[in-house]
Simulated assay, not measured.
Amino acid sequence: MSLRVTFVAAARSSSLLAERFQDDRPLDQAGWDEVQSVAHGLLPLAAAELRYCSPTPRSRATGDALGYAPLVQLALRDCDMGRWQGLTLGEAMAREPDAVDAWLADPRATPHGGESLLGFIGRVGGWLDTRPVDDGDRIVAVAEPSVIRAALVYVLKAPPSTYWNIDVRPLSATTVTGRAGRWHLRFDAGSGQRSRA
């Protein structure tokens, strides 16, 4: 049986604040407004047999606001950034420029004391590969953009450096189909149309 897994990127916490590693800020009013403005296009995904989310407050709130009532999945948490948690890339670079350079250049590096990029991609891919096929063929997962980027690198069997070249916008939907070890990226018709697998 082939699964259809649609990842929905969590709404942003605020467009005015810099992107931070392991950002655990809840949705602010701007985030709620964004969810409401695109909800009509994402509401049909609530019909999925299985509905999951990352453990971050904004992923849970996005899923709830869309009517998914998602189950939290720890495997869909953001990359563990160790002592860089809560920092922006610029702040980490100002404090530890050589360590940031090493981390960006080597997907196995953990200069922050947390998780490597390779480990992060493998963890998210492992979650994808262990989705139950007997519980239904349609799954929706609300996750941080970084988690979706990791999933796409895994699905495409791309080099880990590809992670840095994928842009996942808040509240975008990305679908993969297949089963463990055999995943495909799927592009559907326009945003108002959803084809069924």
Results as ranks from 00 to 15, higher is better:
Ser59Lys: 06
Arg149Glu: 00
Glu144Ser: 13
Pro132Leu: 12
Cys53Glu: 01
Val72Gly: 08
Arg169Asn: 09
Glu34Ile: 00
Val140Leu: 03
Arg196His: 12
Pro145Phe: 07
Ala151Gly: 08
Glu49Cys: 05
Leu43Ala: 15
Val38Met: 06
Arg25Met: 09
Pro107Ser: 05
Arg194Ile: 12
Ala158Pro: 04
Thr62Val: 13
Met81Arg: 13
Arg179Lys: 09
Ser54Asn: 05
Gln193Lys: 12
Ala11Lys: 04
Val72Ser: 13
Ile139Asp: 00
Leu17Asp: 09
Leu89Pro: 00
Gly178Met: 00
Pro132Ser: 15
Pro57Trp: 10
Arg149Ile: 01
Ala105Met: 07
Val8Ser: 06
Ser14Val: 02
Gly82Trp: 08
Ser2Leu: 08
Ala69Met: 07
Arg12Ala: 11
Arg149Phe: 03
Thr162Phe: 13
Leu185Phe: 14
Ala109Ile: 01
Asn165Phe: 00
Ser116Cys: 08
Glu34Arg: 07
Ile148Ser: 06
Tyr52Gly: 03
Ala46Arg: 15
Ala47Glu: 15
Asp188Cys: 11
Ser37Trp: 01
Pro70Tyr: 02
Ala94Val: 03
Ser14Ile: 03
Asp64Leu: 14
Ser15Phe: 08
Asp98Gly: 06
Phe120Tyr: 15
Ala30Val: 10
Ala143His: 01
Gly90Glu: 13
Leu156Met: 11
Leu104Gln: 15
Ala48His: 00
Trp183Glu: 09
Asp134Ser: 14
Gly82Asn: 11
Ile166Ala: 00
Ala75Cys: 07
Asp23Ile: 04
Ala10Pro: 03
Ala109Gln: 07
Ala92Phe: 04
Arg108Phe: 10
Ala47His: 14
Gln193Arg: 13
Pro111Glu: 08
Ser116Gly: 12
Cys53Thr: 07
Tyr154Val: 03
Met93Thr: 15
Ala92Met: 10
Ala141Met: 00
Glu91Arg: 14
Gly86Ala: 04
Pro111Ala: 10
Gly192Gln: 09
Phe187Ile: 14
Leu43Ile: 13
Trp103Lys: 04
Trp84Glu: 06
Pro70Ser: 05
Pro132His: 11
Leu117Asn: 06
Pro44Glu: 06
Pro170Met: 11
Asp28Ser: 13
Arg186Ala: 15
Trp127Glu: 06
Gln22Val: 08
Ala46Val: 06
Gly178Pro: 01
Glu91His: 09
Ser37Gln: 13
Gln22Trp: 03
Gly122Met: 02
Thr177Gln: 12
Ile166Leu: 15
Met1Cys: 11
Arg12Tyr: 11
Trp183Cys: 03
Arg20Tyr: 04
Ala197Asp: 14
Arg12Pro: 00
Arg169Cys: 10
